[in-house]
Design a protein around this nucleic acid. Structure first.
Length: 607
RNA sequence: GGGGUCGUAGUUAAGUCGGUUAUAACGCCGGCCUGUCACGCCGGAGGGCGCGAGUUCGAGUCUCGUCGGCCCCGCCA
């Protein structure tokens, strides 16, 4: 008897062909204006509410939901067949748009005023019970979501991210096209560039023992295109960096890459912020400041401790190195740098919270976290007993301390002081809810140092990249005094994320050679690594510069997503694997033989 | 390379000082139900606690190792 039953059920689940049915509307489209029209919808069963008599199905496609009703009175056979419907089954329905009965309007639903009364329907496919329910509100582990990414992407929230992503990309293309930019593709199989991030390598079958590298960015190709006279280039392209992952970093990511000839930094920045303003207006209806505020790198470090300040809230760092110089508090007196951060109202922080914050700043190398709570009558602090009255007055006046405040201090190497307090600043922004999540705060960071010292390699390396032009006025001294050379470079920061950066490049051969020599790159090395660039610069390279945006990060901020993975269709895990395809994977010995590659028996951990 | 955190039915979580047969909700299966919208009601099945050792009379609980997810430091021109 049970067998017969299963057979019966299977019979009911026979799939239908699409036939000549054509979809007429999406599932978020129908309104009261469509009442009494006949429509055909196709999609997935989101919810089923089978009352035995009436059956309600919320039908979902990528745009939204529509309630459809199977009624035994209207169409008995359509209703009878509908008992088999389950979540995620794929169906096509034909029916009449009806106004919902009085009091049955669902105001929480975009199509809540109407429903579709079924005349006929087709079962296009069944579905196994999904491992997690395809709904926004369900919190399931990210591992499971990534394994079944195709189901995860059905969730309306995630689908909406990709709809927005498309609109941003289209807005960018329209904007750049209007400004006569050419979209030009550059190679994915290219040459390893030793400066910068670790490359992904691809072995060459036809040239055994040699490797292509996947591009970290199309930097040199776009410069070549300027030499080619393309004048204005852009590309929305994949870039690859074999470095460790973070919530906002993936090994392959998408860049909006732009380069222009015959321009200075003002023109690049104007073009770029116009693009960002336009895409915000066109996709979110949000107006951004015009122009974007600008901040020199030195100020960013001084007041925010980072080169990507979140200026949505107003806490700032204050340097007090000079005040503490002769102090009895030797930790401060001897420190290369002493900075404080005043947190208005921070006096409410408990001892436990301060202990946790001390642990937090230790991540950045801080040995401790000095603090003072400003009370009505006195200062409460483990360190203030070491301060003279003049020192107390000096700190109070410079920082504008008032009762209720807490001040945090760091003393030591500037890198540590800035990192610890800069990140503590963000922590305090969250703790005291100083951040208005509806605000988008862009800021240009300018006047970057041309170099930074790499203690591992014991030489100066380019802070931006080695093709960046030195600031006017620093050309003569860039080799003798590299620490004070500025670059014609600029970053664009949004809500504390670096979303783009660029520079004016060296179009003059001598300048480029001087840059290489400042970086300790010999003529031979420069020739072997960047020979084609040096050669191109000999043939009438126009002045040029550009910028590149991290599209994924930008979309992440627009979506309010916490991770870049939520705006990338098939992202990698933190170990750079894909849980869906199980990449990376082993390859056949035949493939290895073709490539002339022999694997070690057992990869050793060291080496 | 390092620090932190998590891993228990399909899913999300609870599980006390180590103690009988490991809880709950949702989902799933079956039945009932003509205005629900995360429908409702009744009944049922389903896991041996990521994996491997160890301690113990006894381990989901303790120890060691290992695998995996996430966050972070380093790294990311």
């Amino acid at each position: 008897m049970e067998d017969k039953y299963i057979e019966e059920k299977a019979e009911l689940r026979t799939l239908d062909a699409l036939g000549d049915w054509k979809r007429t509307h999406s599932c978020c489209q129908l309104t009261a204006a469509d009442i009494d029209t006949e429509v055909c919808l196709m999609g997935w069963v989101q919810f089923r509410r089978d009352h035995g008599g009436l059956i309600f199905i919320d039908l979902r496609d990528r745009e939204g939901l529509t309630q459809v009703v199977f009624s035994p009175d209207e169409n008995a056979s359509a209703h009878e067949r509908a008992h088999v419907l389950r979540v995620e089954y794929v169906i096509a329905i034909k029916g009449i748009v009806r106004a919902r009965p009085e009091g049955m309007i669902n105001s929480g639903m975009k199509t809540g005023e109407i429903e579709v009364e079924i005349n006929d329907w087709k079962l296009l496919n069944t579905s196994a019970t999904p491992p997690f329910s395809v709904e926004d509100r369900v919190e399931t582990s990210e591992a499971l979501r990534l394994k079944y990414r195709y189901l995860d992407l059905r969730r309306p929230k995630l689908a909406a991210n990709f709809i927005l992503r498309n609109r941003v990309a289209q807005s960018v293309r329209r904007y750049l096209d209007n400004l006569k930019f050419l979209e030009i593709e550059t190679p994915i199989l290219t040459k390893s560039t030793p400066e910068g991030a670790r490359d992904f390598l691809v072995p060459s079958r036809l040239n055994q023992g040699e490797f292509y590298a996947l591009p970290q960015s199309p930097q040199l190709f776009k410069q070549m295109l300027m030499v080619s006279g393309m004048e204005r280039y852009y590309q929305i392209c994949k870039c690859f960096r074999d470095e460790d992952l973070r919530a906002d970093r993936q090994p392959e990511f998408t860049q909006i890459d732009i380069e222009m000839s015959f321009v200075d930094e003002e023109q690049v920045m104007n073009m770029a912020e116009g693009m960002v303003r336009t895409l915000f207006r066109e996709t979110l209806g949000q107006e951004l400041p015009d122009p974007f505020p600008r901040m020199p790198f030195d100020d960013a470090m001084q007041y925010y401790g980072v080169d990507k300040p979140d200026i949505r809230f107003d806490l700032k760092l204050t340097e007090i190195t000079d005040i503490m110089r002769g102090s009895d508090f030797k930790v401060f007196a001897k420190a290369e740098m002493v900075k404080g951060m005043r947190v208005p109202g921070g006096g409410v922080l408990s001892r436990k919270e301060i202990d946790d914050l001390t642990e937090f700043v230790a991540i950045y190398g801080a040995k401790g976290l000095a603090w003072i709570k400003i009370k009505e009558d006195d200062w409460q602090s483990p360190i203030v007993k070491f301060f003279s009255q003049a020192e107390r007055d000096g700190i109070r006046d410079r920082m504008g301390l008032v009762p209720g405040d807490i001040v945090f201090f760091q003393a030591g190497a500037p890198e540590m002081v800035n990192a610890a307090l800069g990140n503590l600043r963000l922590k305090m922004g969250e703790r005291f809810e100083l951040i208005d999540e509806s605000v988008f705060a862009p800021v240009w960071i300018t006047d970057f140092p041309l170099f930074e010292y790499d203690p591992e390699e014991k030489r100066h390396v380019a802070r931006h990249h080695p093709f960046t032009q030195v600031a006017e006025g620093d050309f003569e001294t860039m080799v003798s005094d590299p620490d004070n050379a500025k670059a014609r470079a600029y970053d664009i920061v949004l809500n504390g994320y670096e979303i783009g950066g660029g520079s004016i490049r060296n179009h003059n051969l001598d300048n480029q050679k001087k840059m290489f020599s400042a970086l300790g790159i010999s003529d031979e090395e420069a020739e072997s690594k960047f020979g084609f660039l040096l050669s191109a610069l000999e043939y009438g390279a126009p002045p040029h510069g550009g910028i590149a945006f991290g599209l994924d990060r930008l979309i992440m901020i627009l979506c309010g997503a916490k991770s870049i993975r939520d705006v990338i269709a098939f992202p990698k895990t933190q170990k750079a694997t894909c849980l869906m395809t199980e990449a990376p994977g082993e390859v056949s010995s035949r493939q290895l033989r073709d490539l002339g590659i022999k694997l070690r028996e057992k990869p050793k951990k060291d080496d």
